[in-house]
Amino acid sequence: MACLNSETIQEYIDGELTNVENAMVRDHLIVCEKCRMEYDYYERLEKYLAEPVYITPPPAIERNVLNALFPRIPALSSVLSLIAASFILVVTWIYIYFDFANNSIIQALQLTTDKTSNWIASVIQMISAVFSTVYAVFKVINAFVDAVFKINIGVEIIGIFTLLICTAFFYLGSRLVFKKIKGTNA
């Protein structure tokens, strides 16, 4: 029998040959060292291929797929916190916009006074007192920075910056509180 080609050897390893072909190849391998070496080589190769090296997939894959397919609805605590933080922003904005520091609105309310507007005026006065204090602190900070670093940031910039930080903290704080309440109720 002539020497085996690599295809026949591979088919023999795969068990793809008929019984007769199988017997012929087996007999040939006994007598032909060259073909036996070829066979051994393919068999070793087969052995290593049959043990594939898998690369570990990054865990982000599963997470990203699940997020894409099942988007999470924002938790109630997040929604409530966002509403609370927005409230602070709106109140501050109204304060700045209507210039409550000059008490113009309060005076207007007091001119058309009735029992309802009286208590509204008191609330506004309270808020105004808090904001006036904060405004005074900003002025001091601005004056300090100006004196030490010779940079005039401006009270408004400090105010907006502080407001944003406070709102963020308020949002995170509220979330914690709401979560805590939810946890206690559960």
Binding site: P52, Y54, I55, T56, P57, A60, I61, N64, V65
Partner: peptide, 26 residues
């Protein structure tokens, strides 16, 4: 995940692309 990522990674040989294609696949 392991088999699909392994196959794609060995085909494209770029981890970022393999991650993206694996996600697209699922």
């Amino acid at each position: 995940n392991k088999k699909i990522f392994g196959f794609i990674y060995r085909m494209v040989r770029d981890e970022e692309v393999a991650v993206e294609l694996t996600q697209d696949f699922f």
